[in-house]
Design a protein around this nucleic acid. Structure first.
Length: 326
DNA sequence: ATGGTTTTTACTGCGTC
DNA sequence: GACGCGGTAAAAACCAT
């Protein structure tokens, strides 16, 4: 029934401009200083995270994952490197297991004899079999592949995938899987990760790229959040604004005004209980009006997957709230 | 399951190009 | 006449209880 609208958030669009986003409100990821609200900067020399405004050290003695040496050219790099890629949660074994190279070369780069080649081929085969042997590992492998696929279809950045991977891993460790599908939990993890990272995707959008249906995603999501005690605050309407604005090819000016509208609305408490997506859509529409870059309600409703009626209702409220301030 | 709230659907009327 | 917009009523979806 809801199939009348075509979902068009598939990968290729230029999503999300990277922004330092200092007004991200809430302390979701420690993006702002708890003392003064200034933005944080990491100092990898000292291993500290400090506030740019007041100099408060938020955390110290962090581990610097980077190399301790410096290389000035390629050959020097070869000489000094003695480790592989950094560990990542995006691979089922964190990228730490043995991997036999595909090139038939020995450690000095000489080609192998045909006899050796055959031997290596057999070893590769067995290594692969052992590597993904027990069921949990296989499970993870599949789930992470799924997460990756959906994340790129939605244009979600790498850190979201990482987070999703971590969430999934925890779910697996806590034995939340039995009775639930791998895809379902994977999708739920991604949904949760996207929200935590402040780049939320609506359930509808997630649904569009997932193999499982909406109800199950929602159910599994709630379950996972509850069991893992994930702290996820309701999506902030402002986090949808950049995406809508860029989908509609609106200027930064519009985007800025939309944010303004939303924050004053927040102060007035107009927004409680209303769908964040609707609010964001209405703000974008209202802002486009204020900035003389009119887009139609139906255009906004298209990109936001929200009905025009809702936009109308919301944007009246938004303007009203604004009016009271002025 | 139920009741209250929000969103959607469908329809109507008004003004403009 | 098509289009954008506003409003309304009733249905559907959602949420907490």
């Amino acid at each position: 029934m809801t199939d009348t609208t075509i979902r068009e958030y598939s990968g290729e669009r230029a999503h999300e401009r990277e922004e330092p986003s200092e007004d991200e409100a809430e302390e979701d990821e420690q993006l702002v200083c708890p003392e003064c609200g200034g933005s944080l900067a990491t100092d990898s020399e000292r291993g500290e995270t400090v506030c740019e405004e007041c100099g408060l050290v938020v955390s110290e003695d962090e581990i610097d994952p980077g190399p301790e040496w410096r290389a000035f050219d390629a050959s020097e790099k070869d000489e000094k490197s003695r480790v592989g890629a950094p560990t990542t949660n995006m691979m089922h074994d964190k990228g730490l297991s043995t991997n036999i190279g595909w090139q038939d070369k020995d450690a000095y780069g000489n080609s192998l004899s045909s006899r050796q080649r055959e031997k290596m081929q057999r070893l590769r085969t067995w290594n692969e079999r052992f590597r993904t042997r027990d069921s949990k590992e296989r499970n993870l492998k599949q789930a992470l592949g799924e997460i990756d696929r959906m994340a790129s279809a939605l244009g979600l950045p790498e850190n979201v995938r990482e987070t999703a991977s971590v969430i999934y891993r925890r779910a697996l460790d806590e034995d939340l899987l039995p009775g639930r599908s791998i895809e379902g939990v994977a999708t739920a993890s991604l949904y949760a990760a996207a929200r935590q990272a402040g780049t939320p995707r609506s359930l509808d959008e997630i649904d569009a790229v997932s193999r499982v249906d909406k109800d199950e995603i929602a159910r599994t999501y709630r379950y996972v959040v509850r069991e893992l005690n994930l702290e996820i605050q309701p999506a902030d309407p402002e986090s949808y604004v950049p995406r809508f604005a860029s989908d509609l090819e609106l200027s930064d000016e519009v985007e800025r005004r939309a944010r303004e509208l939303l924050s004053t609305a927040k102060e007035k408490g107009v927004h409680s209980g209303k769908s964040p997506v609707g609010l964001a859509a209405a703000a974008v529409y209202a802002a486009s009006l204020l900035a003389n870059e009119k887009v139609t309600q139906s255009e906004v409703s298209e990109v936001a997957n929200i009905s025009e009626v809702t936009i109308r209702n919301r944007y009246h409220e938004l303007l009203e709230a604004e009016g009271q301030v002025l």
